[in-house]
Nucleic acid binder design. Sequence first.
DNA 1: CCGTCGATTGTGGCTATCCGCAGTGTGGAA
DNA 2: TTCCACACTGCGGATAGCCACAATCGACGG
Lengths: 213, 213
Amino acid sequence: MSQPPSPPPAHAFAHIVDDDEAIRDALGWLFRTRNVASKAWPSAEEFLAAWKPDWRGCIVLDIRMREMSGLECFDALLERGNILPIIFLTGHGDVPMAVGALKKGAFDFLEKPFDDNALVDVVIRALESDARHQASKETQATVAALLTQLTPREHEVMQLVLAGKFNKVIADELNISMRTVEVHRSRVFEKMGVRSAVELAQLLAPGRDTARD
Amino acid sequence: MSQPPSPPPAHAFAHIVDDDEAIRDALGWLFRTRNVASKAWPSAEEFLAAWKPDWRGCIVLDIRMREMSGLECFDALLERGNILPIIFLTGHGDVPMAVGALKKGAFDFLEKPFDDNALVDVVIRALESDARHQASKETQATVAALLTQLTPREHEVMQLVLAGKFNKVIADELNISMRTVEVHRSRVFEKMGVRSAVELAQLLAPGRDTARD
DNA sequence: CCGTCGATTGTGGCTATCCGCAGTGTGGAA
DNA sequence: TTCCACACTGCGGATAGCCACAATCGACGG
C-alpha cells in the first residue's frame, strides 16, 4: 500500500507571479498564443499558499512586488523543497542580485523590458527541463518507496550484498546462518523487483543525470 | 601500459588574467597573504597560449581587456574543454552579461569594486570545487583506461553481464559456449580489478555525488 | 616460419546460489 | 489468547559460477 496508484498528473503550468495585473494579462496572452499553459497569481503570498510540492511546470516570478518580493518567495520555495525551474523578471535588477539568484538555482534572470520571443523560449526550456527532471524524480521516489518495504534486517543484508560479499561472509558478519541470509536476500530481490544483485546495484546507483539546464 | 604512473601533479593555482598590472599586483598580493597560490597573466591571449587541459585550480578573469575580452576567453576555454571554475571580475558588467556567463558555467561573477574577503572566499570555494571534481574525474579516467584494455569480445560479454544475464543466456546470445563466456567474464573482472559483477556494476554506475557547488 | 594474442572449447571438481519444505521463537495487534 | 509479521534455522537438491588443466584456430608482425 505504500504506492498510491499514481498521483493525479498535475498538469504542467507556467506559473506567473506578479502583482501588476497588466503584466499578468500580457504574459497570459503571450503564453496562450504560443500554446503554453499558464496560470497567474496576483501575489507571492497567494502563490505560496496554493503551492504544492508535486506541481509541475515552471515559475515566472517578478522580483519587485508589494509585500513579499520575488526573492523572498524564492527562498520560501527553496525551503519547502521546490524543484520547479524559476525564471525571474525584473525592471530594477543589479548584477549581484542576478548572480545570487542564479547561484541559488534560479533557471534564468531576465530584465524588463524583455523580448517576448526570448521569454517564451526560456519558459519552454524551463518546462522541458522540469519534464526531464520528472522522470528521474519519479523512479527515485519509486525506489525509495520500495526500500521502505524492506524490514531492517533485509536492509542490512542488502547493504552487504551490495558490498559484493558472499552469503557466507554476510552470515558470518551478522552471526546468522547462511540459510537466513539467503532468505533475506531473496526477499530483498523480490521486494525490490529485481532478479540479481547486479540489477539491484544498478537500481540503487542511478546517478549520471548530467542534465545541466 | 595504458596507465602512466601518475601525471605530474600540476599544482593548483588561482590564475589571474587581467591586463591591468595594478590589479594583477593587488590580487597577487591579496592571495599571497591568504596563502592562496596564484599566477598572473597579462592577457587572455598569453593565458590561452599557455593553458593546458590538465591545469588545476581556478581562473580569475577580467571581463574588460584590450584585445581579447574575458568573455571571449571564456568561450575559447569552453571549446577547449576547460573544467576549471572561472570567476569573472568586471567594473562595467550588466545583468544579461552576468546571467549569460553563469548560465554557460561560470563559477561566479563579481563587480568591482569587490570586497577582498568576498573574493578570497569565492576563490577558495572555487579551488575546493575543482579539487572535488578532480577525484571523480580521475577515477573516471582510470575506469575508462581499464575499459580500453578489454578486447571487443570481453567488452561485449561485460555488457551482457551488466544486464544481469546468466552465463548460459550470454552464451546463447553470442552463439558461443558457456565456457568461453566464463573465460571472458573472468578476464573482464581481472582487468577491471573487481571480484564480482556487483562491484563491476558499481564501478561503472558511479553517480551519487550530490556535491552541488 | 615462428611467436603472440584473441577467441574458442572441453573436462572435472569445488563453491556458491537459489528454493521448496518444514519448523522455532518473539513481540505486537486484534 | 490468537493471529501475524519478522527473524531465524536445517536439509537437500537443482542450478550457476569459478577455475586449473589442456587445446585448437586464425590473424598479425617479425
